[in-house]
Design a protein around this nucleic acid. Structure first.
Lengths: 343, 343
DNA sequence: TTTAGAAATGCAATCGATTGCATTTTTGTT
DNA sequence: AACAAAAATGCAATCGATTGCATTTCTAAA
């Protein structure tokens, strides 16, 4: 088979009768090398089919030009949007991206973090898993001056750049909208409270209720993992209450979808009997019937921003004295599932 | 700041008064090392917070334990499912995964391939972009004995393992189903014909038509990039024909969605006036109204299989004499957009 | 033509782990 | 106790590119 030998700078050097250092410098556009020599070296390198061995360079320079990314699940629209944004910016800055998924398992998240460290990634962008309540595996990075950027599911306990959407405001706007549409008994199906995105959405919900002088009924607050099944169970539970809700704010669109499907199946009218608002603006939200009112999260842009921040940190070597806490604005998208009348 | 120095096997060796080779062997569970020494070394390594430097090992062993993945767009349900499947298997076999997206740009695909090679990934899993008609950048891998596995958008010209769904059969089943539902004038909105998945879907379409003794009307065959906009333009065009279709087989769900939305907006009844079938089973297809009949593609499983195949190749070093061409079965999912009566 | 200074190139160590081969230590047998 | 065989450990080269410092070559002014 065409078992081509691997070509190194030494091969090029030998062929041209010069030293490897000169070849290395020429290929890196080092101005110490004369234009003539550089041209000759580059030409020969191309002709010989030379491809630099990044590992060797990495080992020597102690840089990998690689950004590690940890997300709960790649195959989720929001996360894959973020990844896409990260990849976009990283690629244009000459960085590779290593993607890993924790599957919301703490154990896997820890192992992944170790692997990324062993691979000496230059920086890590992470959104923590649902089970994560300890953070040593992540502190490890900042302790070693390896830039860390959190997005969406951020960690308060660690100093780092953080990018999140305005979950509080999102929860607030969603709830206020329901109130404006005439809701009085609003339920909330939220996520695990160890994740502050869900705490904040809940806080926003409560704040809007309080502002409107409405009571938050304990029975109307449910928390689970926000899967399709969880959503169905939650709506069943809510409908068993003596006090039935006239509106539900779900902490994600998946749950909202479950709720809607269950309600439609059981002949309960949306939005007339019960209004529903979700969170995240998943692609299906727009096209389902009734279409789901939701809070838009700019995933791609968050990814871009995360990559920009981490690359900036990587380039300026030492940790910045001031960490940014970027809160992306949320946008309420009103669709059929909650639209009765002009607010 | 806690600027921890990096710990190497030499540090461990020095602390224990032994040689670095012994430390290296102990950490790699080499049986040459006595149990006692090994235990002591591992303990000390843990205590000192040692983390292996993968780059150094990689350079020496000429392996990276990394799989490169090239997809057109990460942020697409099918592709992110595949990636998720790849990551799943790779992680469990100790491989890292570097993900890149070509954005369907040939230029970017070429550069990405170079970068992956420079990073000396152990293997590459790829689904080519829409613009790709030349393959030197990919042949480069197989010529250098770097395992290559294609999925979905495979390349006939290169010998390698290939994993695709049965696009022909998918197209055939979709069309046959429409015929069974009473369609006579069936249109097809397909993708670029340089991608064989779209050629095969078209072939399946034509075969089913021929089998039923139906004519394929040239006017009823459109090809574009299958975006939302393309879909809308295509349906507009089809409706302008003197001969209007009574059914449309779309080569992906996105196009089917565009078609459906346009038809609904214009008061054309689905499936009564026009039936629609898509391809891929995107998450929205199930929940849109009318729900979209489609062909299921097992993305996650394809990713798993791709990872298994490439890892197998990587481990047995030399290229297999026989390349597999795995064709995953497709499944027709009948939903509202095409269901008039029992087939 | 010299020669100082600038420009270009080369030497050799380095990054951290691996590994073939040599050497030392241990074990078991007589 | 002696010694061969087996087990454990160490030495030193290696992977390929980078880079501080030394050396050579070139340029231009005297």
């Amino acid at each position: 088979m065409g078992k081509q030998a691997e070509i190194t700078i030494h091969d090029i050097a030998k062929k041209l009768g010069i030293s490897a250092s000169t070849v290395s410098r020429a290929l890196n556009n080092n101005p110490l090398i004369s234009k003539a020599t550089q041209a000759k070296i580059k030409e020969t390198a191309a002709k010989m089919g030379y491809r630099p061995n990044t590992m060797a360079a990495n080992l020597r320079t102690r840089k990998t030009n690689t950004i590690g990314v940890i997300v709960p699940l790649i195959n989720r629209h929001f996360f894959s949007s973020v990844i896409s944004g990260i990849e976009d910016v990283a690629y244009n800055s000459g960085f590779a991206v290593t993607i890993t998924q924790s599957n919301d398992s703490f154990e896997k998240e820890e192992k992944i973090a170790q692997t990324l460290y062993s691979n000496r990634v230059d920086g890590v962008i992470v959104s923590i898993g649902m089970e994560t309540t300890k953070f040593n595996h992540l502190k490890h990075f900042s302790e070693r001056n390896i830039p860390l950027v959190f997005f969406d599911r951020v960690v308060d306990e660690i100093e780092a750049h953080k990018i999140s959407v305005d979950d509080f405001n999102g929860g607030f706007k969603a709830t206020q909208h329901l109130i404006e549409q005439g809701a009085k008994k609003i339920a909330h199906i939220g996520g695990p409270l160890n994740l502050n995105i869900y705490r904040k959405r809940l806080d926003g919900f409560c704040a809007a209720m309080k502002k409107a002088g409405l009571e938050v009924d304990r029975q109307m607050l449910l928390h689970n993992s926000l899967t399709r099944t969880d959503g169905t169970n939650a709506i069943k539970k809510l409908l068993k209450n003596p006090q039935k809700p006239d509106a539900i704010f779900c902490a994600n669109d998946t749950t909202a979808l479950s709720v809607i499907i269950y309600l439609v199946e059981n002949g309960i009218k949306i939005p007339e009997d019960i209004m529903v608002v979700g969170f995240s603006n998943e692609p299906f939200s727009e096209v389902v019937t009734p279409s789901i009112s939701t809070i838009r999260q700019p995933g791609f842009e968050m990814g871009q921003k995360a990559a920009e921040l981490i690359i900036e940190q990587i380039k300026q070597k030492n940790q910045p004295s001031l960490f940014q806490n970027i809160v992306m604005p949320t946008e309420l998208i009103i669709r059929q599932s909650s639209f009765k009348k002009k607010g």
